[in-house]
Amino acid sequence: MRRTYHLIALLIVITFISFDASAQCKGFAKKMCKPELTPYIHDGNYHAALLLEGEEADLYKTFYSGQEYRLAVCGGAELPDIEFKVYDAAKNLLYDNTKDNNSRVWDFKMQSSQQLKIEIKVPVSPKPAEEPMEGCVSIMFGFKDTGE
């Protein structure tokens, strides 16, 4: 009986913790990633998820001619530096942050409108650990106010 109680208590605590962990990404995105967009204006969209070391994610978005954007990709302190690459629809590589000191931001402007793909990877930490680390990863876009 005692064992059953412990098991139920453990399950409830795990549920509660996982709910909380998910909710933390919102706070992480607002407090840790949004400031990276300054002086650009955040578009207001929310793209964040809990990712494990070694996990990848893709984001597709249309970018418009004449607009200037800042892309920010941020990972929690428990994760290694997040790697990201930007491709056009024909899979031509346009940017790779590992060739730019693992920068968290990239500023760019579009000569013409097109859809781009942002490929995000949480690298595996060089320090061996029993369990792979998990943390929030947030992708945010800012744009410039283009006129009075």
Binding site: H47, D58, L59, I139
Partner: peptide
Amino acid sequence: KKIFHSIP
């Protein structure tokens, strides 16, 4: 893998 699609 996780896929995000961003609408303006």
